[in-house]
Design a protein around this nucleic acid. Structure first.
Lengths: 154, 154
DNA sequence: CTGCCTCCGGTAGCCACTACGGGATCAAGC
DNA sequence: GCTTGATCCCGTAGTGGCTACCGGAGGCAG
C-alpha cells in the first residue's frame, strides 16, 4: 500500500480528493496533473505536491471553471508567474457567465413553475404543460441571452 | 425550391425553426423527427405537421428538457395518449432539477462575486481569487446538492 | 445548359469525464 | 516463499446534444 516513503497510490489520492481514479489519469493525459514517479512495476506514486494540486483543480472545477481556466489559474498560482490581476480577469469572466446562466435558469424556473402550478387545480380541458410547448402559445421567449443557444445543455 | 405542393426543403424548415440543418437530420436519425417523404432526387420534403413537431421540440429543448423528456412529451401530446398527469410529472421533475441548479449557481455566484470584489480594493499580499482555490481555505463548500458532482458542467 | 446554391450521407469533433475489460502488480497473511 | 485478493495498469469506447466538415449530387433561374 505504499505506506513507506510517504507516497500515495493512485487510488488513495483519488479517495483523498473525492475523485475517480480514471479522472486522475485523465488529468494526467491532458497535462493538468504532472506525471508522477512510478514503482518498478509501473504504479504511480504521488506526494503532497500532487495532493495539493489536485485539490486546487477540484476546487476550481467545483466552482465551475473550465479545464482550460483551471489550467491558467494553476500557472498564475505559481509564485513566479503569480498575477492577481489575470486571475481576477478569469474569475470575473466566469462570474459573468454564471450570472447569465442564473438569469436564464430563473426565467426557466418561473415558466415551468407557472404551468406546473396551473396543473394542480381541477382538471382542465387542455394540459397546461403541453400547452406551453404547443404552437399557438407565444411564450415570453425562454430567450437565452444569445451568447449561446438553448441554455447550453443547462 | 419546392414552392409547388406546399412542401418545405430541409433548409427552409431549419430557417423557419431557427435550427441548423444538421440538427434536423440529427433529430431524424435519433427518431425524434419522422423521416419525411423525398423528392426523386432524395431531398427531404416537409409539411406543416413537421413544422409543428419541430417547433414543439425546440420549445421543449429551450425550456431545458432533455431529448428523452421531449420524446415522452411528444407522445403525451398526441390526443390518443394524452395524459396531463404524466406531462405534469415530467415537468415537475424537471422543475426540481432546475431549482437544484439554481441553488448551486446562486451559491457559486456569491462565492465568485465575493472574491472578485475583494480584488478590486488596493493590492493585497495574497490574491483572493487564488486563495479561494488554495488548500487552507475552507470554502463554504460549493457543495452541490449531491445528485451529481461539480454542477454537471454547468 | 450552365452556373450556383442547396442538400445528401457519413464521419469526426466538442467537453469532461465514466465505464469496461483483460492483464499485471501490490501488500499481507501463512 | 507463495498465494490471495485488492488494486492498478493501459487503451478504447461511450455519454449528451449537437456542430463542422467533406466530396458529390440535386434543383432551379437565366
Amino acid at each position: 500500500m505504499l505506506t513507506k516513503a510517504r507516497g500515495l497510490a493512485a487510488g488513495q489520492l483519488a479517495k483523498a480528493a473525492g475523485v475517480n481514479l480514471e479522472t486522475i489519469r485523465y488529468y494526467e493525459t491532458i497535462g493538468l496533473m504532472p506525471a508522477p514517479p512510478r514503482t518498478p512495476g509501473g504504479h504511480r506514486v504521488y506526494d503532497d505536491v500532487h495532493v495539493r494540486r489536485l485539490a486546487f483543480i477540484r476546487r476550481g472545477r467545483g466552482l465551475g471553471f473550465s479545464i482550460e481556466e483551471v489550467r491558467a489559474l494553476l500557472v498564475l498560482n505559481d509564485p513566479r508567474h503569480g498575477s492577481c490581476a489575470e486571475a481576477k480577469d478569469i474569475a470575473a469572466t466566469h462570474l459573468t457567465e454564471v450570472r447569465h446562466k442564473l438569469a436564464d435558469l430563473t426565467r426557466l424556473e418561473s415558466i415551468l413553475a407557472a404551468s406546473v402550478a396551473r396543473c394542480t387545480s381541477e382538471p382542465l380541458a387542455q394540459c397546461p404543460v403541453l400547452d406551453m410547448l404547443g404552437p399557438e402559445t407565444s411564450l415570453p421567449r425562454a430567450g437565452m441571452t444569445t451568447h449561446d443557444s438553448s441554455l447550453d445543455r443547462l
